[in-house]
Structures are given as structure tokens and as C-alpha cells.
């Protein structure tokens, strides 16, 4: 299975980066690294959502090292992949579940439609597969049928879901879930929250309240707060990370929908700026489509190179 996920990841990333690499590949049949080539290279990075600043810096570094030299296609791509992997390596970590906490509370936050509920389900499946006792809290009490959605996932993953009627107080639900998870001796409690735009003060305050209320039971909760980002997101990801981090204790990122045509290149810029660990990536709608984030594989995949 581990072999197959690697190939699936590569497949997914290959799909997403075909255009980038086609562009680069086409350029480098001519061999000499000149300004036109560098410009095109920068364009390709910008189109992968790396952002103007990061793209410029990466290309600048390449130019300093090899301008005017004869460079082969593979060589340039490998050099780029190395540079990107260097930025990403420090943030490629997995979600560490601390057995000292029973339960280890994982709060999952993000803007609407980023993939929080699906990510919670995938994590439940993954952690249960590791032999842990997992519980889910359906704290998205706003969106219609969000509770039902999580319940279906809970059934599929074989983990209990603490839920109330839609429209209830999410903080109260989170409190109840934590209480129950403690009582039942769970290892992990995954709290799925409603999607919220980070610029809505009242909704961000609601999130802060969820944290506050859970801390009444466990002063160290939540032990992990995952911000879920959609790979199609552009430069607004900066604002999302910045604001969520200021208002809730975000300590890791999950990048979803990497199986599409979006490249998620903004992650490189985020890694440079915030140094938040990226603990997983989502590569499909299935319950086992969650993968560890591997810097080298991601970077080389981004450049269309074999892992």
C-alpha cells in the first residue's frame, strides 16, 4: 500500500504540474541559460501560485549560479526542486499525537469549502488504523447537514461522532465531546468546526470561544490546531494563515485537493514566511486519500521529476 500511495501521489502531482514542466522542458532543449529562459522559468513558477516574490528569488538564485552556462533540462529542474525542497524540508512533519493527553485534542479549522470535514474523516481513518481510539466532534453546527455528513464518515471509519442538532452552540458541543472522550478514554478527539472566512470577527470569536471552553476541561487543549487549505487557493492563503494564527493557536497546515490541476505552490511561500509544519496532503475524495507531506517528493513532483 505504501508503494501505491507514492505512485498515486506522483501521478496526482504529475497531472498538476504537466504544464509547468512542459514549459520548462521546452525551454531547455536550447541549453544555454539566458534571460529569456529565466523569465519563462519565473512565469512557470508564478503559474504554480508560488507568488511573485518567491518565484523571483528562486530564479535569481539560479541565475547567479548558472547564468550563461550550458544547462540541461533535467539539471535545471533538479536544481529548482532542490531549492524548493530545502525550503519545505523543515516544515514536512507528521501530526504528532501525544499519548500523555487523553484525549489529544485536534481542532480543525479553515475557510468554507477547504475540505475540513473530509480531512477529519481521513484522519480518523488513519489514526484508527494506527490502533488509536478516536472520537469525532461535529462542531460545525451551522452548515446544513454538516453533522449528517460527519456521521456518515464516522460510520465509514468506524469511530463514534458526538453531535447535536444543527444550530446549536459549537463551543458547548466541543465541551461535551471532550468530556465524553475523556470519560471513554479516547486517545484522540478530532473537532470539526464550521468553515469561516478569516475576516469575519464574530466567527473568529466563535472559534476562540470553542478553544476557551475546552480549556475549562483541559488547560492544554487543543493540543493541535490544523488549518486546512485548499490547493486551488492563491495569494489569499497568506491572509488566511496570518489571521487564523493570530486568533486561534494554529500550529500545522493540511493542503487538500492536490489531485486537481492546482499546484498548491503557495505552500512554498507559506513555509518561508510562517514555518508552520505541513502535516498532510489530501489527494482524493476517498477515506484513505490522505498522505504525509514529503518535501522532496512534493518539490520534485512540482518540477515533474521522479521522486
Amino acid at each position: 500500500m505504501s508503494g501505491s500511495w507514492l505512485s498515486r501521489l506522483r501521478e496526482g502531482l504529475a497531472k498538476s504540474t504537466r504544464r509547468v514542466t512542459e514549459g520548462i522542458g521546452g525551454l531547455f532543449t536550447k541549453k544555454k541559460l539566458d534571460q529569456a529562459t529565466l523569465d519563462a522559468l519565473e512565469d512557470a513558477l508564478i503559474q504554480a501560485d508560488l507568488g511573485v516574490a518567491v518565484a523571483g528569488r528562486l530564479v535569481g538564485r539560479l541565475a547567479k549560479e548558472r547564468f550563461g552556462k550550458e544547462v540541461a533540462d533535467e539539471e535545471v529542474r533538479a536544481a529548482f526542486a532542490d531549492d524548493i525542497a530545502e525550503i519545505l524540508t523543515p516544515v514536512a512533519r507528521s501530526l504528532a499525537i501525544d499519548p500523555a493527553h487523553r484525549p489529544h485534542v485536534v481542532l480543525v479549522v479553515g475557510v468554507n469549502g477547504s475540505g475540513k470535514t473530509t480531512t477529519v474523516a481521513k484522519y480518523a481513518h488513519l489514526l484508527k488504523g494506527e490502533g488509536r481510539k478516536v472520537m469525532l466532534a461535529a462542531a460545525d453546527t451551522f452548515r446544513a447537514a454538516a453533522v449528517e455528513q460527519l456521521k456518515v464518515w464516522g460510520d465509514r471509519a468506524g469511530v463514534p461522532v458526538v453531535a447535536r442538532e444543527t444550530g446549536g452552540d459549537p463551543a458547548g458541543l466541543a465541551y461535551d465531546a471532550l468530556e465524553r472522550a475523556r470519560r471513554e478514554g479516547c486517545d484522540v478527539l478530532l473537532v470539526d468546526t464550521a468553515g469561516r472566512l478569516h475576516n469575519k470577527a464574530n466567527l473568529m470569536e466563535e472559534l476562540a470561544k470553542i478553544v476557551r471552553v475546552m480549556r475549562k476541561l483541559d488547560a492544554s487543549a487543543p493540543h493541535s490546531t490544523l488549518l486546512v487549505l485548499d490547493a486551488t487557493v492563491g495569494q489569499n492563503a497568506h491572509a488566511q494563515v496570518e489571521t487564523f494564527r493570530n486568533l486561534s493557536p494554529v500550529d500545522a497546515l493540511v493542503l487538500t485537493k492536490l489531485d486537481g490541476s492546482a499546484k498548491g505552490g503557495v505552500l512554498v511561500a507559506l513555509a518561508e514566511k510562517f514555518a508552520l509544519p505541513v502535516v498532510a496532503i489530501g489527494v482524493g475524495e476517498g477515506i484513505d486519500d490522505l498522505r504525509p507531506f514529503e518535501a522532496r517528493a512534493f518539490a520534485r513532483g512540482l518540477m515533474g521529476l521522479p521522486a
Binding site: 504544464r19 508564478i46 503559474q47 504554480a48 501560485d49 475557510v111 469549502g113 485548499d230 486551488t232 487557493v233 492563491g234 495569494q235 489569499n236 492563503a237 488566511q240 486537481g260 490541476s261 492546482a262 499546484k263 503557495v266
Partner: peptide, 15 residues
């Protein structure tokens, strides 16, 4: 489409 969409918007719209 989400207003937060990045460069991929062109690919999605075209497809």
C-alpha cells in the same frame, strides 16, 4: 468559483 482561487482559475474555467 471561489474568489480566493489562484492561478488555476484559468485551467478550471477553460476546462
Amino acid at each position: 468559483a471561489d474568489a480566493m482561487t489562484g492561478q488555476d482559475a484559468v485551467n478550471v474555467a477553460k476546462a
